[in-house]
Amino acid sequence: MRFLSGLILTLLIINNGYSFNHRLEISTISFELEAGVFCPATIIKGPLNTGQSSDILIWQENDNVTLRIVNFTSENHHIVFDNYADFGLILPGDSSEITMNLSNTGVYRYYDILNSPYNNYHGTSGLMHVKATGDLANYFYWDLKEHKESWNNLIATGGAPVLANYYPDYFTINGNHAPNINSDPVARIVGNVNQEFKLVIMNNGLSIHSLHFHGYHLTVEKDSKNPSYTGRSKDSFGVYPNESLILSCTPDKPGEYPVHDHNLVAVTGGQQYATGMFSTILIAP
């Protein structure tokens, strides 16, 4: 049930402008790369999240969120929410609290600005979606990352691997690789013919990912890196590190269709095929 805990969906309330108290913890976990293969990772998660990636936070426009971040690691961290909050330096065992008035809709990244990009690579980065009032779309969320066992071990001991030599071995969506991605209800796209779904993608990895959708073209609703791409209808999308996309699609036919990274090395893991960044869209008639 790891996948279920990977989603901490802060409740979406249809009404406008609610207040919430929420707590996130910076914690070191044992990340399972594949069965029996573990490495250390550091993620930012709610107390109920026993998953392998930082929380996906979903709020509504004009919500007031009082967010406390507690550092349970032995390292300093400095967490920033793009557009909204700078929690400052958080020492080991310490915490920081800020109330955010979420007046601007959109997808925002939160991340650790210390030891860049290694802390983020190690897991201290996530996404926050502030939905517009009345937005009842059927959303799914993908937090893309790659992993290299030796890098995770080195960074955990204060090392700084050489970026020019980066060759990741494992590829995940919301901390899961195929086939487990399909068991994550936040990630696995399930719907019906003629029923629109939307997909929020955030690349919190270091690699560029090129996602290809079988069966359907999707429309770019928002692209954080290339705002002018709005309205493009495509089946393949390059996603840069730190870039977010909102895509929409109204399926015209039923079936089960793959979605995967078309850098085909990324549909492997630990030299095994098929795994990695591969999921399927399941559309009922």
Binding site: G215, H217, D235
Partner: peptide, 10 residues
């Protein structure tokens, strides 16, 4: 690739 065919022909 990209022709959006149905599942049986994918």
């Amino acid at each position: 690739h990209g022709l959006d065919v149905d599942q049986a022909n994918d």
